[in-house]
Amino acid sequence: MELSVTVNGTGRVSEVEPRTLLVYYLRDELGLTGTNVGCDTSSCGACTVHVNGESVKSCTMLAVQADGQEVTTIEGLAPSSEELHPMQESFQNNHGLQCGYCTPGMVMAACSLLDENPAPTEEEVREGLEGNLCRCTGYHNIVKAVLACSGQDAS
């Protein structure tokens, strides 16, 4: 069926099977492979993208459910190809990644978190990222990066 969706600011019209999951539409159809598939069971959060500005797990959403809506992936976060998004910069500055597999999902979840709660406590950051797993267990610096991005002292 026909799907009409805005992805990273660009309108897209595609023919999709109803059972196509949003993450596979983004990766296979649009070539936006920054969004990773981790567990494929809505547990790990590696596939987190924004739909209408809110974090969602794109492995647990059909592409057709995004019809008429705005999707943002990690590729659409930075203001330009020359510049990182402040959250990406904060992950870099605070070494908020090890292998990097969970990073796109972590960054998307973190942006959604700060959108809803601009000055979270450390506990609120940890709670807010409970839907994202880092199997390198690098949580400490991820939390630091999110706190720093919110303008708070992360030390």
Partner: peptide
């Protein structure tokens, strides 16, 4: 319930 992503949907 679940996590923030789940609660958004």
């Amino acid at each position: 319930v679940g996590d923030p992503q789940v609660r958004h949907r």
